[in-house]
């Protein structure tokens, strides 16, 4: 049973990993991107944001295929409440001065000092943050819902 669970968790982690790896790789590549032309930096940022969004949608569709009606209802709750929680969390996180300064600094570094590019990159990075937090929020609500369903199990 434990082996089965570990396998299940491992497979799940493997499927989810691109959503984590791409943003982490993007931020890790920040110093290198800062030395590249602005067009390339913007393209990479946009590609990363698009990938995270598209892959999240792909994962959602894949998971939904195998769900029964109770689980689909749970997913609906997770999506609506989780998205809202994620958006609110993003607003709260962005109100933290040190984090906001860090993001602005990162955007400035990536844009090589060009204010216009920095704004564009700042928006892209902020959007990625919102999407990631929404996914985390939906996941958290989904976990809470499945725990509710498991209560009083025999």
């Amino acid at each position: 049973m434990a082996t089965l669970n570990i396998r299940k968790i491992g497979r799940c982690a493997l499927w989810i990993s691109p959503v984590i790896i791409v943003p982490v790789a993007f931020f890790a590549a920040a110093p290198w991107l800062a030395q590249q032309p602005d067009a390339l930096t913007l393209s990479v940022a946009a590609a990363a944001a698009l990938f995270v969004m598209a892959y999240s949608q792909f994962l959602a569709a894949r998971v939904n295929r195998r769900l029964d009606e109770v689980q689909i209802a749970g997913q609906r709750i997770a999506n609506t409440r989780g998205m809202t929680i994620g958006s609110v969390a993003a607003v709260i996180v962005m109100m933290i001065p040190s984090l906001m300064n860090g993001l602005a600094g990162l955007a400035m570094r990536l844009a090589s000092g060009s204010p216009e590019e920095a704004v564009k990159l700042g928006i892209t990075i902020g959007f990625m943050l919102v999407v990631v937090l929404q996914v985390v929020g939906a996941g958290a609500v989904s976990l809470w819902w499945s725990k509710q369903l498991k209560k009083s199990a025999d």
Partner: peptide, 30 residues
Amino acid sequence: SQAELAERVQVSRNSINAIENGRFDPSLPL
């Protein structure tokens, strides 16, 4: 068991548990 019934009606055990405990009202087909 809940798992056996779940297998017979092709839903998850948790779903049977939710229906059994009145936490979820099933659709007419289910």
